[in-house]
Design a binder for these strands. Sequence first.
RNA 1: GGUCCUGUAGCUCAGUAGGAUAGAGCACUAGAUUCCUAAUCUAGGUGUCGCGCGUUCGAAUCGCGCCAGGAUCACCA
Length: 554
Amino acid sequence: MIQQRLEKIINSVFQEGVESGVWSDKAAHKYSVEVPKREGQGDYSTNIAMVMAGIEKKNPREIAALVIERLEKEEIIEKLEIAGPGFVNIFLKPKVWQDVLQLVSDAGADFGKSTVGKGKKVMVEFVSANPTGPLSIGHGRQAILGDSIARLLEATGHSVYREYYFNDAGRQMRVLGQSTRARYLELLGKEAQFPEDGYQGEYIKDIAQSLIDEKGDSLVENDDVLPFTEKAVELIFKDISDTLKSMGITFDNYFNEHTLYDDGHIDSVVKELRDKGLVYEKDDATWFKTTEFGHEQDRVIIKKTGEPTYRLPDIAYHREKFRRNFDWLVNVLGSDHIATVPDVLAGVKALGYDSDKITVVLHQFVTLTRDGKQVKMSTRKATFVTVDELLELVGQDVLRFYFMMRKADSQLDFDLDLATSQEKENPIYYVQYGHARICSILRRAQDMEIKIKAPTDADLSLLQEPEELQLLKRIASFPAAVESAALDLAPHRSIFFLMELAGDWHSYYNKHKVIDPENVDQAVTDARLCLITALQQVFKNGLEMLGLTAPEKM
RNA sequence: GGUCCUGUAGCUCAGUAGGAUAGAGCACUAGAUUCCUAAUCUAGGUGUCGCGCGUUCGAAUCGCGCCAGGAUCACCA
């Protein structure tokens, strides 16, 4: 916002220099304006002089002096200096920062949102777990990561569509049905053969029990596994969507792999690939020439048995995504899918679609620590911890926050002992408390019948304490922080912004009083109330944008 | 063996298009509340940024080669 303004100014200074022949335009788009890490190095800093000096083989500090000469007349700039190897440090007038409060007040709940997405249609596909059991901790990470990405994209002006892709057919479903049937028979006191690779979780017994409640023993003589599978899928799916809902997650569409078969998409993909000479038969199977796309080996797409491998429907599915006219396809996947990604990309490329429109966010695994030891997890053996269990332990906010805190590329260590016994150490309370603290002050103001003035009616120039300027700058950087987190599909950056915001605020709170009955300077109080009102808005927007609550009391 | 991810403080991790003296939380120590919620704040850090070489004004960041950990490499999904 303010940075963009400054970038424009620097660009025009650069352009001026080019036109008057002071330097060439070779450095165009190579320099940058950024916020220095260290205090005292300006509100912003640009490396333009060093970049130009490198290209023009001149002294950077001399060029910096020329840049400064041209910048000096700018109204928003208070002070300029040359520093270090040739940085131009720019100090802005406090008014520039103070005026931010008006912007927040005008935008309200929209402050931080933007339109950079230009209404681009983007599909975010995530979770996509097949209905074989409750969502595990790994699915939980993915659900929250995908959902927060979707939320950030919405906040930045994208038109977002959330989709869940699932398959309720095939071998794993047969095993699920067999497992359920075995439990059903066991519960009725009959002999039963539990499948060797069956699903051992307790939830299978619950499903069997509900079949007994509904139909009694009428299925005992039934050799058909289908009614068991159907019931299991129905109940597990209900369980999954309930879990998702309790994390605050909903989908626009659940896409069933079946429809790809029913509507002939599978066949037509094979035909199209065959017409392009990218498919051949070998050993009674049908192969896709992925080597044409630089892969090590070709892959089977239709097995000997006539059944497609997962690759084929995956490719057909992505073609359907393209056909539905999305501008951008974001796939959030676990790192165990790493090997499947190139095949799908090769497939859509072969079908003539632009695979660059697909962005895959692969997240690394979640490891679970209990009693200081790592827990091994498996759905089959039911040794996993479910999302439901975690939700019960720590609640939605903590779970969301914890899973958003790390970048997708990092493995995430979920320490159960920490989550259960030391909840207060969780940084989300630090952020939420920041919001609650403001609410508390505003309640106090109301009790004292102090009216909160609009930024235009208060003397904002009284906000001159370093901590106040720091807060104003942080508030001003919120929209850019959201934008960068959204476009880079990196929700953890928003989390870090909120923690920094809370840090600034808690420090300020401890050093300065907003309402001070003993030392009444009404004008200062008014200005500070304006400040914290804006701050409250930023906390609220930031938290809610990520699906977190902004409590008014804690 | 191939591909991908990771390696930064005792622990868990940030570090966006390469920038100035590498950061935060936790833990630990010492302090702060007659006063807007102490779920807070203040002070306390000798880190081979896994190792080496290269690119350049400048590297945790880019390139190459190693080392270590994880994922994955089916006619399972």
